[in-house]
Design a protein around this nucleic acid. Structure first.
Length: 481
RNA sequence: GGUCCUGUGGCCGAGUGGCUAGGCAGAGCUCUGCAAAAGCUCCUACACCAGUUCGAAUCUGGUCGGGACCUCCA
């Protein structure tokens, strides 16, 4: 039933049935960051999505070799190092370290390998030498260029043709290029810039070549999936195709998978607009789980808009889910000794199948969440009418399985719900201490059945955006938007 | 200018040639000291104009909006 995994391929612009080159094995290369700054939430969208894609492939039984690289030599790194009077390698090492700190907070498994460009300089040099030998590249003034005219399929990924690109070119063309769209494979380094000895003099690799080389070294000349953000389609991935396929004469990647952007208040996040949200600040202002939830609640090929309203809605939704999880947890703790005489997975089996089917259809996460909420409602309903330990256990098991794939739902409910409420509380004009004190006062009033006073306290809190609910486990509070 | 994507209810956001997406917000009911939570019920939309079809919001063409890429960017 799940053997027809459909995955959208940017190369064909349609969903295709996924079939790996080698049965049972998937080779996946995803373009990682250039490490000269902290990563923003957009970088994390890719990370979170490709983790899910990897998990899904593993669920389907593939062994996945997932490479996520660091580009650790580049003009932006060099510029930063000069601005800060440091070595380029210090800058890149620092930001790889910072990235790994951020990544840890996400609590998702790492890629199989995280290669660094500077560890592959020799391979890059020999790759370029071969391209020159095959006459796909030429040398001019210590610079090596790739000759786009020589690669007849140039433009097949981005749907562009060379003529349009030439006429559309808006930047000053390097006079050494035979063709304005030719791109750099190797460029000379000035004496103060980092560089490596090569047949063309001391220099460094251009952008694009490192990914072709690392993919080739670690995964071979044909890979199953190549991924990245959609802005990489052109020129980065187009150029990778040109390099790799000229070299091997074979198709480089079978499936090209691209995630869409995150916008903030309907504007594209970009460095020039200055509206970049760093993943680190988002995760500390809110929570990594909120970030993951928001990112996966929209299909990966649609753009995702962050706004305060959206963020708050997501928090409310997470509270809803975790409230049910907590209920199930508590019940199981209470009834721990009760015999489990119905071990079939029957209450939510169909729902789980719908989740699997949705993931199998181009990783359709919005449908997954719709089903998650259906399961929450069903559980609350069952649980209201006939409390039963098997329902509770099955409910948790559903979330275990789905959460394991998505990288969600593994927080400790009680603690996490409080955390989420505290985030929402930041916008309100009241502190946790005040709330707790008022609840205590109200409890005293309630005990002596002074409902007039207790209701006054509750109304007062409600005016400040705090709702109370009386449960058998005491009075709980939550923030109302 | 070129290439491509997109237009869904108060908001967000999937999907499909005919059958309930889901979340948030709103209304009613049950529960409750009263509430809240939870459940049930309701609000049921697909930019516009033509065409194809027994039937289109879903396909085709056009119109008008929005966006991306063509330049470093996930």
């Amino acid at each position: 039933m799940l053997d027809n995994f459909k995955l959208y391929n940017s190369l064909s612009n349609e969903k295709e049935i996924f079939k790996s080159i080698t049965p049972g094995v998937v080779k996946m290369y995803v373009c990682g960051p250039t490490v000269y700054d902290l990563l923003h939430v957009g970088n994390f969208r890719g990370l979170i999505f490709f983790n899910l894609l990897r998990n899904w492939l593993q669920y389907l039984g593939y062994s996945v070799n997932y490479v996520y690289n660091y580009t650790d030599i580049d003009d932006k790194i060099i510029k930063k190092s000069q601005d800060e009077n440091k070595l380029a390698s210090e800058i890149s090492a620092k930001f790889i370290e910072e990235f790994e700190k951020d990544f840890k907070l996400l609590k998702i498994p790492k890629a199989s390998q995280n290669p660094k460009c500077t560890d592959y300089i020799d391979d890059i040099i020999s790759f370029i030498s071969n391209l020159i030998k095959k006459e796909f590249a030429y040398v001019k003034n210590k610079t090596v260029f790739f000759s786009c005219n020589k690669f007849t399929a140039y433009g097949k990924l981005s749907g562009k043709n060379i003529e349009d690109l030439i006429s559309g070119h808006r930047i000053t063309v390097n006079q050494d290029k035979k063709n304005p769209i030719d791109f750099v494979l190797w460029k000379p380094s000035k004496s103060k810039e980092p560089g490596w000895e090569s047949p063309w003099g001391r220099g460094r690799p251009g952008w694009h070549i490192e990914c072709s080389v690392m993919a080739n070294e670690l995964l071979g000349d044909q890979i199953d999936i190549h991924g990245g953000g959609m802005d990489l389609i052109f020129p980065h991935h187009e150029n990778e195709i040109a390099q790799s396929e000229s070299m091997s004469g074979k198709n480089f990647a079978k499936y090209w998978v691209h995630n869409n952007f995150i916008k903030f208040d309907d504007q594209k996040m970009s460095k020039s607009l200055g509206n970049i949200i760093k993943a680190r600040s988002f995760m500390s202002d809110y929570n990594p789980e909120v970030l993951k939830y928001m990112i996966l609640s929209v299909h990966y090929r649609s753009s995702l808009n962050f706004s305060f309203k959206q963020i708050n809605q997501s928090i409310i939704s997470l509270i809803k889910i975790y409230t049910a999880l907590e209920k199930a947890n508590n019940y199981i703790k209470e009834k721990d000794n009760e015999k489990d005489n119905d071990s079939n997975f029957s209450y939510f089996e169909n729902d789980l199948n719908i989740v699997y089917k949705s993931l199998n259809n181009d990783i359709n996460t919005p449908i997954v969440f719709a089903q998650v909420f259906n399961v929450v409602r069903k559980f609350n309903n069952y649980f209201k009418n006939k409390k039963n330990i098997n329902i509770a256990k099955e409910f948790l098991s559903f979330f275990n399985r789905v959460g394991g794939l998505l990288g969600l739902f593994s927080e400790e409910p009680k603690k996490f719900i409080l955390e989420l409420n505290l985030i929402l509380l930041k916008e309100k004009d009241i502190s946790l201490e005040e709330i707790e004190e008022k609840i205590k006062k109200r409890d005293i009033a309630r005990k002596i059945k002074n409902f007039k006073d207790s209701d006054l306290i509750r109304d007062d809190l409600l005016k400040k955006g705090i709702e109370l609910k009386d449960t058998i486990n005491g009075t709980k509070w939550s923030v109302r938007l």
